[in-house]
Design a protein around this nucleic acid. Structure first.
Length: 567
RNA sequence: GCGGCUGUAGUCUAGCGGUUAGGACUGAAGCUUCCCAAGCUUCAAGCCCGGGUUCGAAUCCCGGCAGCCGCACCA
């Protein structure tokens, strides 16, 4: 536990990072507005993520709709949550699947709605299996927001509960765009929605939130990434689901099977780099492997980046090897061919024995059904035909006896130049709002009553404060001009001439502005201004013309030393 | 969703059936050659919403909403 989250939330509200949404109407739990500083911070975090994944790793960024038809979530398994109805014991509080309690009392419990289930439970006087207490009426958990598209009854649709599905369903497009090579990656930054039962803890559990997700599609036998070799010697602290926390290199972790494969290891590393870059405190971060029971049944491996913040250890990022589950699910449900083609080094001649129907004999015998019988014959294994006088083939539920004169077993030669394969997926999934809140939490420092947000230059919403020591005698004009120059250089600057100079510094410190520029009476004589570094309160005189470069230098880290070396 | 606690300016808070609802910080305007929330003057801003009890409610009761803490949930 690092600090009281309420204090941080107060600051956020006071200074324009965050506001409870729709506050004048009493608000709505689980929704927050980002104020100007919060929106800027969020943008900076997202921008850096984009720089790493899109520019750095060559992932393809796409942007899919938030509303999606029901079929998508039937395939993904998300609608399964709707069929789960729960009852709670009024005495001991334990919860049970309602359909499980009526097994044996009804032929198809899963088909019942909550009223029918409730009646069935009452009629049969079903009590709590563990303590015998009274049960509540069945309730369904509905974690997706449901809506309908179009007029009248419309078509059932949902707000996406994650951005990932948009990338899975677009695999073929992304694959083709990437010139039909594996691995290929897609990313998406966007909003997702979950109708949480009880959202709490500020930005940690929202009903509408932002995700940055990447889907890396890989060859199932080659789960690596080109840059793995550059980072494999890096050491990370890992909390595996078996044994004690360990400090080891990525290479050792993969060799020891602590991390399932090289690609997963690489993106764990990239996640760590991202976290440090945006200013999270390394001593308050850990990678925790999902427990066996926590992991989805199809997942080969899954690691969470957790941060220690005021609420305790909190999941910020999940990095999972999802195998072929998602893509395969969409293949099965949609019938689309979401496969990659693996070309063999040399085309192979494949010889195969197949059953070939003899239409000359089938036609007169089966007339209109001949085609269907032939199809059935083609599907038979050679082994089930060999040495028999005839076989039976099912046509429209009817068994037809087919004499051996109607088919023959032949050797078929085929040239095969490759094979289709369903890609495996490694999914790094980042919760933007949680990351943003953790960045603030880790940046928050307090000395007596003086609060400083030690935000890194990369993410700070405002890069520099610019003040005239006095708002007169032309100092204000010089300061205004400097402010303009900074803005022109793409650096968000904030002009302030109200109150004492100390108060103005304090204002900037509290919102994490990395440096301040002060114009004083000397400036008019020597053309220099004071640049002050937030975290040390140290100052340096620099020429006005060099201010934008000085600020840039300071933002890139390393303090005032490199600034004084500027020429 | 259940149970407990809570709700007063932007923030923190005083109030305990009758107050012009008080303060601190912040904010705004101004004075002050002002480099670390200095000082002074002036100003702005509040009882979560809706019912009820009462001559009278920020205060008591009920409902809603929101927040916190536990339980459950977190696909």
């Amino acid at each position: 536990m690092s600090m009281d989250p309420q204090e941080l939330l107060s600051l956020c509200k006071r200074r324009g990072f965050l506001w409870p949404a729709y506050d004048i109407y009493g608000g709505l739990a689980g929704l927050y507005d980002y104020g100007p500083l919060g929106a800027a911070l969020k943008k900076n975090i997202e921008e850096h993520w984009r720089a790493l994944y899109v520019l750095g790793e060559g992932f393809h960024e796409i942007s899919c709709p938030i509303v999606a038809p029901e079929a998508v979530f039937k395939a993904s398994g998300h609608t399964d949550a709707f069929s789960d109805m729960y009852v709670e014991c009024t005495k001991c509080g334990e919860t049970f699947r309602a359909d499980h309690l009526v097994t044996g009392l009804h032929e198809a419990p899963a088909s019942l709605d909550e009223k029918q289930l409730g009646r069935l439970l009452k009629e049969n006087k079903v009590k709590c299996p563990s303590c015998g207490g009274e049960l509540t009426d069945p309730k369904r958990f509905n974690l997706m927001f449901r809506t309908s598209v179009g007029a009248g009854k419309g078509k059932v649709a949902y707000l996406r509960p994650e951005t990932a599905q948009g990338m899975f369903v677009n695999f073929s497009q992304v694959y083709r765009f990437g010139r039909e090579k594996l691995p290929v990656g897609a990313v998406q930054i966007g909003r997702a929605f979950r109708n949480e039962i009880s959202p709490r803890q500020g930005l940690i559990r929202l009903r509408e939130f932002s995700q940055m997700e990447a889907e890396l599609f890989l060859h199932p036998d080659h789960k690596s990434w080109p840059r793995y070799k550059d980072v494999k010697g890096q050491v990370l602290e890992l909390v595996p689901n078996k044994g004690k926390p360990v400090k080891m290199t990525l290479e050792d972790a993969v060799k020891a099977k602590t991390i399932a494969n090289e690609a997963l290891a690489y993106f764990i590393w990239l996640t760590y780099k991202f976290a440090i870059d945006v200013g999270l405190d390394a001593s308050k971060l850990r990678f925790r492997q999902h427990l066996e029971k926590e992991m989805a049944h199809y997942a080969a491996d899954c690691w969470d980046l957790e941060a220690d913040i005021g609420y305790g250890w909190t999941e910020l990022v999940g990095i999972a090897d999802r195998g072929s589950y998602d893509v395969q699910a969409h293949i099965s449900h949609s019938g689309a061919d979401l496969t990659a083609f693996e070309r063999f080094d040399e085309p192979k001649e494949v010889e195969q024995q197949v059953v070939r129907p003899n239409f000359g004999a089938l036609g007169p015998l089966f007339k209109g059904k001949a085609k269907q019988v032939a199809d059935g014959l083609s599907k038979l294994h050679v082994g089930s035909v060999a040495g028999k006088d005839g076989v039976t083939v099912e046509v429209d539920g009817e068994m037809c006896s087919v004499p051996s004169s109607c088919y023959e077993v032949v050797l078929k030669k085929e040239k095969v130049s490759g094979r289709k394969l369903v890609p495996h997926v490694i999914e790094p999934s980042y919760g933007v709002d949680r990351i943003l809140f953790s960045v603030l939490d880790h940046a928050y420092t307090q000395k007596d009553d003086y609060v400083t947000l030690r935000l890194k230059g990369l993410v700070a919403p405002i890069k520099a404060g610019v003040f005239p020591l006095m708002a007169r005698d032309g100092l204000d004009e010089i300061a205004g001009a400097i402010c303009n120059e900074l803005t022109k250089a793409g650096l968000a600057a904030y002009y302030d001439d109200s109150g004492s100079i100390g108060r103005r510094y304090a204002r900037m410190d509290e919102i994490g502005t990395p440096c301040c520029i002060t114009v004083d009476y000397e400036s008019k004589k020597d053309g220099k201004v004071t640049i002050r570094e937030r975290d040390t309160a140290k100052q340096l005189r620099v020429e006005i013309a060099k201010v934008p470069r000085a600020v840039e230098t300071l933002l890139s880290g390393g303090g005032l030393e490199p600034v004084s070396a500027l020429r």
